[in-house]
């Protein structure tokens, strides 16, 4: 059975559109692509990227010791942390990338709940919420003078009152403070 060329072209175009739409939908709403960072020529570089398969495993293991933490972990889909040591070679580029990320988050409707600029430290915390009771994504960006830059993205179903717990467990100071404030609301 022969198909007209026009039908085949239409099918091919439709397939491309469907696959593009699918790939766009694959990233959860709270996910932010920071891009790739390379280790600097001098200074610290730390990258942690834990996806839902390992988080689920950790939740099952934590169930026996800390059921509350296990429940918190089950709501998470991804934890990404980047710590980049700054030097003369990379400082301008990293700072520009962080400003770009912040601009994109503002443009996409993320709520900036904290902006702190003092003593050479520049901290911003963004939330992506679903309704009033759930946080789908959380981004923390820190420029610590000319020492280091820190980026954190946590994705999942996060209750506002649990943000401080995440901050405690992952040792992220801005989250500990914000979590306490969010928990009071």
């Amino acid at each position: 059975m022969k198909y007209p060329a026009r039908s085949l072209l239409s099918l091919a175009a439709l397939s491309v559109l469907v696959s593009l739409n699918t790939s766009a939908q694959n990233s959860p709403p709270g996910y932010v692509d920071f891009g790739k960072f390379s280790p600097p020529t001098s200074g610290e570089f730390v990258e942690v990227h834990i996806k839902n398969n390992l988080i689920s495993m950790a939740a099952r293991l934590a169930e026996k010791i800390e059921p509350d933490v296990a429940q918190l972990l089950r709501g998470l889909q991804l934890v990404r942390v980047n710590v980049i040591g700054l030097n003369d070679d990379n400082h301008a580029d990293v700072e520009k990338r962080i400003q770009t990320i912040r601009g994109e988050l503002d443009a996409k409707g993320w709520e900036r709940i904290v902006t702190v600029q003092k003593k050479g430290e520049d901290v911003s915390v963004y939330l992506k919420t679903r309704g009033e009771e759930t946080i789908e994504g959380l981004v923390v960006t820190v420029l610590d003078g000319k020492r280091e830059a820190v980026l954190v993205n946590i994705v999942g179903d996060i209750k506002p009152e649990k943000v401080a717990v995440i901050g405690e467990k992952l040792n992220i100071d801005p989250l500990k403070k914000i979590g306490r404030e969010l928990g009071k609301k």
Partner: peptide
């Protein structure tokens, strides 16, 4: 396999990898 943790500093490099389909404890 995905890299789960990467640490690079002046003295050392440490990288930890886990299979993408890790599901079971």
């Amino acid at each position: 396999w995905d890299r789960v943790v990467g640490v690079v500093n002046r003295h050392e490099l440490v990288a930890v990898y886990s299979p993408q389909d890790s599901l079971s404890a």
